[in-house]
């Protein structure tokens, strides 16, 4: 059986998959809206404890990484394999820095005994419990997506090295980019909802 290649089909498939990811987080946004509505003041106060500078830096890191992976597609299409790989490497590096920041941020909160199930958190009232519950769950799920994205991009980089992704067959690279942009897109909403709405 000769493989018939349909790039538009695989791109459509990727977009449809991204829709499921959007809905996955969409469910969490439903939960967030309801609990924020019920506990408006507590969410307001709890959000002030998150570090805006760290959040801002992480946002900018993700935005830059999005731009680098998008440019990597341009590079491969201009037949510039080296630059494409370099940009992908840069994307992976930025993703790791993001995770590192997140690690220290979580560590900081956990050191202050703010984590789900902690008695200190419970004593601060239900609004705080829900805010931090959502914070850990949503940023955690997002971080998990970052990790999946990094593995995906690493796999794509391997294909570029092996010349399986070239200037006229680059849809997989594009798809990994789409995934990475979606992860960025979700962060664009998580950032104001947790760090800025004070």
């Amino acid at each position: 059986m000769e493989e018939h290649r349909d790039d538009l089909a695989s791109k459509t498939g990727m977009w449809l998959f991204l829709f499921t990811e959007m809905l996955l987080f969409g469910g969490l946004f439903v939960v967030y809206s309801v609990y924020r509505y019920i506990n408006a003041d507590a969410f307001h106060l709890a959000a002030q404890e998150l570090s805006v500078p760290v959040g801002t830096i992480n946002t900018i890191i993700l935005l830059i990484s999005s731009a680098t992976i998008a440019m990597s597609v341009t590079a491969i299409r201009k037949n510039n394999k080296k630059l494409s790989l370099l940009l992908l490497g840069f994307t992976i590096l930025l993703g790791l820095v993001f995770l590192g920041n997140k690690y220290f941020e979580w560590g900081h909160h956990i050191k202050e005994n703010i984590y789900p199930g902690s008695p200190v958190l419970a004593s601060r009232g239900q609004g705080d419990v829900l805010f931090y519950g959502l914070y850990y769950f949503m940023t955690g799920l997002h971080a998990l997506h970052i990790i999946i994205g990094l593995v995906f991009i690493g796999f794509i980089a391997r294909l570029i090295i092996k010349d399986r992704i070239v200037s006229d067959n680059y849809v997989l690279l594009e798809n990994s980019g789409l995934y990475w942009h979606l992860v960025d897109l979700i962060w664009i909403f998580l950032f104001p909802l947790f760090y800025l709405i004070t």
């Binding site: 309801v34 609990y35 019920i38 789900p116 239900q126 959502l134």
Partner: peptide
């Protein structure tokens, strides 16, 4: 696993 409280009325969940 973590007793977060999303749907637990004693923790404020609904």
């Amino acid at each position: 696993l973590f007793n977060i409280g999303f749907f637990d009325p004693t923790l404020g969940g609904d």
